[in-house]
Design a protein around this nucleic acid. Structure first.
Length: 245
DNA sequence: CTACGGTTTCCTGCTT
DNA sequence: CAAGCAGGAAACCGTA
């Protein structure tokens, strides 16, 4: 689908942008999309370039990727605000992100900060070794047996990834004992709100989130720590030891 | 349509 | 008193 649209003419009309058209309305369904290499221009994929050097096309592709992979509601994103290159994107403040993408802004900002800091990594469940995505991965292959560090659908992985991104977690979570995998929930309400955003559930509370965390005791993902708001990764949790993602 | 895992929601009782 | 913690029970929801 992208191939049928000239990237150079992406959202040329501000009037269209302001109407907050969804991605699919503009470009078709997600299924048609995101090949790692731009076949039309021969450009490298955004995944292999630092955000600072992304072209406008790269920014568009990144946005599309986020909407697809992180199940973000494209309707709340003002695409006109993202008709910019990587340099401008990186210069956007947290506030500007919220302004441009509403409730999705929080997460998009978080994702971008993570990519800026760690690159676009993938993890393969089998060996859990970080794998830097390079060109040539087919989208199907990409979807079938890999995941990004941030798209994890499970709560404990969400918590883990937040913990591994100190620059982006806004002090919501803190390591108590890095070696032993003990961490503390500093801002319980913020954590619940962020998890709620992730699950598109604005009724999420720490009370309910913590119930889900307590279920992990049974499976060895988490271990009980006898202190308020403190948890510990269990033997069945993985990925939290590797310093940076 | 069924099974099932992983929550989500609610609740009662207890602790800090 | 407010905020957390413990789990049981049942509803929910996406995926196989």
């Amino acid at each position: 689908m992208l191939d049928s649209v000239s990237h150079n003419t992406f959202v040329p009309n501000p009037m269209i942008c302001e109407s907050l058209m969804s991605w699919s309305e503009l470009f078709g369904t997600p299924e048609d999309s995101y090949m790692p290499v731009d076949h039309q221009t021969g450009d490298s994929s955004w995944t292999s370039i630092h955000p600072q050097y992304w072209s406008r096309n790269h920014v568009c592709e990144w946005l599309q990727f986020c909407c697809d992979q992180y199940k973000l509601d494209a309707n709340c994103i003002s695409f006109s605000h993202f008709n910019i290159d990587g340099q401008q994107l990186c210069n956007m403040s947290h506030e500007e992100f919220l302004n441009a993408a509403g409730i999705c802004g929080e997460y998009l900002f978080f994702i971008l900060q993570n990519i800026k800091a760690h690159g676009q990594y993938l993890f393969f469940p089998d060996d859990d070794k970080p794998y830097l995505r390079t060109e040539g991965l087919k989208s199907q292959e990409f979807q079938s047996h890999s995941r990004t560090s941030l798209q994890s659908s499970h709560l404990w992985e969400f918590v883990r990834d937040l913990l591994l991104s100190p620059e982006e977690n806004c002090g919501i979570l803190e390591w108590e004992d890095r070696e032993q995998g003990i961490f503390r929930v500093v801002k319980s309400d913020a954590l619940a709100k962020m998890w709620g955003q992730r699950k598109k559930n604005d009724r999420m509370t720490y009370e309910k989130l913590s119930r889900a965390l307590r279920y992990y005791y049974k499976t060895g993902i988490l271990e009980r720590v006898d202190r308020r708001l403190v948890y510990k990764f269990g033997k069945n949790a993985h990925g939290w030891q590797d310093g940076k993602l």
